[in-house]
Design a binder for these strands. Structure first.
Length: 259
DNA sequence: ATGGTCGGTCTCCGA
C-alpha cells in the first residue's frame, strides 16, 4: 500500500500538476494540505474520475486538508480534538479498509511565525493536542500513519542553511522538542530513518531562487506507529515535482507498507 | 546588504 502526503498550496492552482503527479506516482492514498478551498468548491469529480474516493475538510481561503483514496475509507473524522473553539481546518483522519486496516491521519501543522507571539502559542498548543491524539491511537494498538506538513525542521541536517532558521518557528527548540516527544512515544520518522540527510528536503521557497540554489528544508513528514513501521517497505520524495510546470513549493513524500 | 514569489481573495494576508 502506497501512502503519500502533498502540500499542494491551492487546489485550483494545481489543477494540472496534481493529476499529472497522481497518474505517474499512483499512490493508493494521498493526504493533501493547503487545499485553500471550501468543501463545496473542491473539484472532487476530477479525482473520482481517476479512481479516488474524496474526503475533504476545507475552509475559505486558507488551510484545508483532504484525503484521496483508491481503497475504501471508514471512520472519517474531521478536526483535531481538544479545542472546540479551533476553527482552522488542519486535520482529517480515516481508516483505509485494506487487508490489514491502516488509520491515516492527514495534518497541516500551524506555521507559528512570528515567534514569539499568539501564532506560536497556537502552534505549540496544537502540537500538544496532536500528541494527545497520538497517545490515544497508540493505546489502541492500531496500525496508523500521521502524514503531512508538520512545519517543523527536526534537526540542523534537515536544512540547507540551518543558521538561517534559528529564530524561525519551524526550527525553534520548543517546536523541535514537541516533534521529538511524538517520536519518542514510538512514532517512526520514515524519511528520517530510511533517507538520512544531509540534502534531503521537501520544501523550497518560491522566493530568492531557493529551488535553483537547492536551499531547501525537510518539513513534510510521514510518522508511523510501531505496527506500521514494522510494515515499512520503501520511502521516497518526488523531488522532480518541484521542477515541473507551475509547481507547489512542497513536493510529495510517500511510503510503501507491506500488505 | 536583507531583496524576493506565490495563492486566494481578505486589493492585503499568510506562507
Amino acid at each position: 500500500m502506497k501512502l503519500a502526503t502533498f502540500n499542494i498550496n491551492g487546489i485550483k492552482a494545481r489543477a494540472e500538476a496534481l493529476p499529472a503527479w497522481l497518474a505517474q506516482a499512483a499512490p493508493d492514498v494521498v493526504c493533501l494540505q493547503e487545499i485553500k478551498s471550501v468543501d463545496e468548491a473542491f473539484p472532487r469529480g476530477d479525482f473520482e474520475a481517476l479512481g479516488y474516493r474524496v474526503e475533504t475538510h476545507g475552509q475559505k481561503g486558507f488551510n484545508g486538508v483532504a484525503i484521496l483514496s483508491k481503497l475504501p475509507l471508514s471512520d472519517v473524522r474531521r478536526g483535531l480534538p481538544g479545542d472546540d473553539a479551533d476553527e482552522q481546518a488542519r486535520w482529517i483522519e480515516a481508516v483505509v479498509d485494506a487487508g490489514r486496516p491502516v488509520r491515516v491521519c492527514g495534518l497541516y501543522l500551524p506555521n507559528g511565525n512570528p515567534a514569539p507571539g499568539p501564532k506560536y502559542d497556537y502552534k505549540l498548543a496544537w502540537m500538544t493536542r496532536m500528541e494527545a491524539r497520538v497517545r490515544e491511537l497508540l493505546a489502541g494498538e492500531e496500525h496508523f500513519v500521521c502524514l503531512g506538513d508538520y512545519n517543523v525542521i527536526p534537526q540542523g541536517v534537515d536544512a540547507a542553511k540551518p543558521e538561517a532558521w534559528v529564530t524561525d518557528a519551524l526550527f525553534l527548540p520548543a517546536s523541535r522538542e514537541a516533534f521529538r516527544r511524538m517520536a519518542n512515544l514510538g512514532l517512526t520518522d520514515a524519511v528520517g530513518v530510511r533517507m538520512p540527510g544531509p540534502g534531503v528536503y521537501t520544501f523550497w521557497d518560491y522566493q530568492a531562487g531557493a529551488w535553483e540554489r537547492n536551499n531547501g528544508i525537510r518539513i513534510d513528514h510521514v510518522m508511523c506507529s510501531p505496527q506500521a513501521a514494522d510494515r515499512l517497505e520503501d520511502v521516497g520524495i518526488d523531488k522532480a515535482a518541484r521542477g515541473g510546470e507551475k509547481p507547489s513549493d512542497h513536493v510529495p513524500v510517500w511510503v510503501r507498507l507491506v500488505a
